[in-house]
Amino acid sequence: MTSEAKDVEGETADGRTIAVVSAGLGQPSSTRLLADRLASAAVDALRGRGVEAEAVAVDLRDHAHQMVDAMLTGFTAGALRDAVDTVVGADGLVAVTPVFNASYSGLFKTFFDVLERGSLDGMPVLIGATGGTARHSLVLEHAVRPMFAYMRAVVAPTAVYAAAEDWGSGRSGGVDGLSERVARAGAELASLVAARAPAAARRDAADADPYAHPVPFERLLASGGQ
């Protein structure tokens, strides 16, 4: 039932795509592991609603150099360009970072810093983080959630933090374990994704490309260019 996010670019013909961004550095990475579990939960919950979806992994470690280059040159190139297109063109996003110095990692932030303004408008996002102790779990609420709110993404209510001890503990004393939190968060993302028109259909309907549909000059002139 649970399957790892595919490591290939692509999009199912009539289904939805969930981009799975992981800023984990290790290989294997507990951050990627959490990201995959969140993605699987969302894909399963979508299937429960009769919506086919595919998870596509974006491991930021693979694009580390190109992300710094993009910061300096102002354009994204090569494999990073494909990763950005995958994320921006997805129907939903799972974004998971390790906690470094009481916040998201620099690598995680840099990826979202090189996106064009407006790239994530209205994007359903499920956020997660990993760390050594549970004491940093509010990083999701004071750092990650505000960043996506600023980017005008729609963040699912449940954010999932996995500390080292979570990987070995179940539900206890009326408190949900990691599995229950993952399932609930996945269902929330599925609900947001299912409620939105597929990305492919939105692209066809939007006509928002300013290069394909410029504002006529008389209107620019009349409105003082605004």
């Binding site: 040159t73 300013p210 006529p216 620019l220």
Partner: peptide
């Protein structure tokens, strides 16, 4: 795109710096 539109409207020239990007 607004500047490309402006150049086109007046029939002026358009220059793309074409370096760096």
């Amino acid at each position: 795109p607004e500047i490309a539109e402006q150049a086109a409207y007046y029939g002026d020239g358009f220059f793309a710096n074409n370096i760096f990007w």
